[in-house]
Design a binder for these strands. Structure first.
Length: 422
DNA sequence: TCTGGGGTCCTAGGACCC
DNA sequence: TCTGGGGTCCTAGGACCC
């Protein structure tokens, strides 16, 4: 039996959500979607890239991910608004709730995309998709595209056709007419690098890729070449996965407001990142065996270095110390603009093998960190801070947020009645 | 005061083992 | 004195996604 898969994609998600919020909750009259506008990071914090743009801004060739200065050069009247990730999470959840009325099998693919397996529960897919799309607009105020096909790949390709507020089908028999004429870059998993390699082979359209000899693609792109050739032929057997697979790694990173030139400040940032990463590990009941430090220097060159632990851990201290070792072996002294800690080699057995090299009483540390986690859960993230992060009068900077990385948290007001020093 | 932050998967070379 | 052939693990780097 032919499956029926929907892919639902919010049009200019972050920007649409901002637009709706301003109209419905702030009483604004200007609809950001109707003018050249974008959601962008804070340039002063060196987060100055475009996160989402309106359709009018797109006409000026403003691109997601590009520096705000470049976008402004193309479109001087571009209206910029700062991101509000909590709003996006709420908007996303509200949409998923509506989607749940249409299907049991829902895969939340990202904050603004979802797959629905409609097989056997929908007589007229186009009509159902129209109804779903209208319901989202009526209740939530933003538009979506819905792609319909018999597998996830084709449904996703279909939702990318003409925007906004449209339903498209891309059934297998429609592939030659609707998909093959498109530039090869439009195919899922064909990025800039693959595009270049393919064009060097004389492959410019998805149709040409579909018919290219496999050995030629393998020679140029290895297994990835065979994968995208399958996609070009509309082949994808993957299921709609309702339960998200467990993380294979946990990482956090941040761009610093100013270049870091001394190891003490760098280590303060590493400690704040170790706090964030290890808190996430403990919250998920995960332990890791590999710790990696990544750096981006002021010339935008990236480096990383990793190290194995003798036993899996979820302790802030162990992750921090390992990160410091990596950092010491990696950093060449060039000023840094970005630091990250990434962990992998995840195990989810909560029992830890006692290790003869354990530098500290593991169980004692565990209990201390569990207590801190509990306090932070109950009284807020800032209820407990290490002394080195506390901004005391007369203390010299730089002041580093004690939980580093993640999507930018609202800068909280410091409430000293709740502060505790660890 | 130009370029975020969170992920996944693949490849290749070297070390090491039998 | 021509130096196999599997296998796994570790590390660095690359590519792609939202």
């Amino acid at each position: 039996m032919r499956r029926i898969i929907f892919h639902v994609d919010v049009n200019s998600a972050f920007l649409s959500w901002e637009a709706v919020y301003r109209l419905r909750h702030l009483g604004g009259t200007l609809d950001l979607r109707t003018i050249p506008s974008a959601v962008g990071g804070d340039q002063e914090k060196r987060h100055g890239i475009i996160l989402a743009k309106s359709i009018p801004a797109k006409k000026y060739k403003v691109q997601t991910g590009e520096p705000i200065v470049d976008a402004r050069a193309k479109c001087p009247q571009l209206m910029l608004v700062p991101p509000n990730y909590e709003l996006y999470q709420r908007s996303s959840k509200a949409m998923i709730r509506i989607l749940s009325e249409y299907a049991d099998q829902i895969e939340k693919y990202s904050i603004d995309e979802a797959f629905l397996d409609m097989t056997g529960i929908c007589q007229d897919p186009k009509e159902t998709a129209e109804k779903l799309k209208e319901q989202i607009f009526r209740k939530l105020g933003f538009t979506v595209n819905v792609g319909i096909s018999s597998n996830k790949l084709l449904a996703k390709m279909a939702s990318d056709f003409e925007k906004p507020d449209r339903v498209h089908t891309l059934w297998p028999e429609e592939i030659p007419k609707k998909m093959w004429p498109l530039p090869v870059r439009d195919l899922f998993l064909v990025g800039g690098r693959s595009q270049k390699k393919l064009e060097a082979l004389g492959i410019f359209t998805i149709g040409q890729l579909a018919k290219a000899p496999e050995p030629v693609l393998y020679a140029a792109l290895k297994s990835h070449g065979l994968q995208i050739r399958k996609y070009a032929n509309g082949i994808d057997e993957s299921e709609v996965v309702t339960v998200p697979p467990p993380n294979k790694g946990y990482g956090n990173s941040l761009t610093t407001p100013a270049d870091v030139t001394d190891p003490e400040t760098a280590r303060l940032y590493l400690l704040s990142l170790a706090e964030t990463v290890s808190a996430r590990l403990r919250a998920d009941g995960a332990m890791v065996r590999t710790v990696e430090v990544s750096l981006r220097d002021c010339h935008l060159k990236n480096y990383h270095h990793q190290r194995q632990l003798p036993a899996p851990t979820d302790l802030t201290g162990e992750i921090y110390r390992t990160a410091c070792q990596c950092f010491g072996e990696l950093w060449n002294g060039v000023p840094l603009r970005h630091l990250g800690i990434h962990t992998s080699g995840v195990t989810r057995t909560l029992e830890r093998q006692l290790c003869m090299f354990d530098p500290v009483d593991y169980e004692k540390c565990r209990r201390a960190e569990a207590a801190v986690d509990l306090l932070r859960k109950r009284f807020g993230q800032d209820a407990v801070k290490r002394a080195c992060f506390v901004e005391a009068p007369g203390k010299k900077g730089p002041f580093v947020d004690h939980m580093g990385g993640g999507i930018s948290r609202e800068k909280r007001r410091v409430d000293y009645t709740k502060e505790r020093i660890l």
